[in-house]
Amino acid sequence: MSMLNDVTTRPAGPIVIDIENITKHYVMGEETVHALCGVTLQIRRNEYLAIMGPSGSGKSTLMNMLGCLDTPSSGRYQFNGKNVSEMDDDELAAIRNREIGFVFQTFNLLPRSTSLRNVELPLIYGGIDPETREERAAQALRDVGLGDRLLHKPNELSGGQRQRVAIARALVNNPSIVLADEPTGNLDSKTGQEIMTLLENLYQQGHTIILVTHEPDIAHHARRTVFLRDGLVESDEMSSASRIKELAS
């Protein structure tokens, strides 16, 4: 991994995400499913965190909470000091637009729009004027190494390139956190490795990254791993120094 110029754990900043004893249950037919049964978690600026767990452990639900796509049934969620658990749909949309950059397993690009237009989308919803929009979107694409693919549509790009467009889109609003849900799940291992390198670089540049995955290999790139089981945090550990050295070698 010689591409990584500085494989160190960066000092964490102030608390960005502060959740306390949150629960989430769904009613499915006559049964009530308890997806989260009281999770407490703090995430600081400039952390690189992986959320792991088998299917049914509640990690997707937790990710939806962290991404402000959903609100908890009970408990407290503060994002940058703002109480998310009491926000309505449009306030949540505003938080997602400004504070969270999503990277999806299936990329979720608009198929008929160019890379540039895809990356511009969050800026449109943020009310940024057209010139600034195009400038910032182009810059974001250059930052992920796609400066020569601005006007390509998703079907003219490889899987890795598509995920880079998605990452550029996640970063273009300069969010507080980047939330990556199985970002390598639809990619071959070599391309997956490239994407993980890109995320590592973003971390080194000062971004806060939350990775949701069930693959230990992927989770090992993070500096901290939260393991969920049956809707509860089973373990929450910093990666060991030896592990980081291993990454660097």
């Binding site: 991404g67 796509l69 997602r96 979720n108």
Partner: peptide, 16 residues
């Protein structure tokens, strides 16, 4: 539907 979900995740409001 999925596109609507994506747009909402990126900050589209109900009105949008």
């Amino acid at each position: 539907t999925k596109e609507i979900g994506t747009r909402k995740a990126l900050g589209a409001r109900r009105r949008t």
